[in-house]
Nucleic acid binder design. Structure first.
Lengths: 118, 118
DNA sequence: CTCGATGCTTCCCGTTGGAGAGTAGGCACC
DNA sequence: GGTGCCTACTCTCCAACGGGAAGCATCGAG
């Protein structure tokens, strides 16, 4: 069986959904700078809800992209870090970020043009 | 003002959401092979609803990534194609697809491990 | 003995997305 | 002339998803 993201039942579609997820991209980018705590991630990624941060981290952990380390202290401390697999995604998501920032003005210009015509 | 996708109000966040969208990625990949009609896209991208296909195409058109050409014939014919801007995304989304397919087995293994521990 | 810190979890509700039926408009066949 | 048929949507209904806020568990500090 060949991997084919265009087939909705292929596992690669699910993988693509995960790595293309809006929050996953930002979490991975944030962890690029080294281990981060839950609160640090929440602070850096503006607009993410606690529920979605937890959910995204669980998904990334399940897929082997990040590790979750609990320190038995009070108050609790949980560190998240990229795995080797997660680090192999870094170039790609950094590329997405770079594209978004460098082509921002072109996209906004296109948008203005489109909206002007209606 | 510097573009920062981590800020929820920055335009680059919206651009990142668009190019990281599950359906946008698949539409762009499909259009990589040349112009496609609405029905061809719907057929190729397994599992997409008509509503989301229309919505995704409109979004991509608005952002200047694809063009929409209506041929005044009966039955109607509408062709979609990538713009230069859209083509500049190709390497990136092809990279995502490649990552998904090549690391599929690793991700599935990680998932099985995670689920086994629970 | 209450407060605060931290990392969640739960509840409520508005928004989003999927499924499927309906629409427009002219040609083609009976 | 009526009945389909074709394509690219558009509309309607409903389930699922995501945001916001509040609750929970733990233990030391004050």
């Amino acid at each position: 069986m060949q991997a084919d993201p265009f087939n909705r039942n292929c596992g690669s579609r699910k993988v693509l959904d995960r790595i293309g997820d809006r929050w996953s991209v930002l979490v991975v980018l944030t962890l690029a700078g080294g281990d981060k705590r839950y609160g640090e991630l929440a602070e850096r990624i503006d607009g993410i809800s606690q529920k979605m941060l937890t959910q995204t981290l669980r998904g990334l952990e399940r897929d082997g992209l990040v590790t979750r380390t609990v320190h038995a202290s009070v108050p609790p401390r949980v560190d998240y870090a990229l795995t080797d697999l997660g680090r192999s995604l870094l170039d790609l998501v950094a590329g997405l970020e770079a594209w978004a920032t460098t082509h921002l003005t072109e996209v906004e210009a296109a948008r203005a043009r489109y909206d002007a015509r209606g």
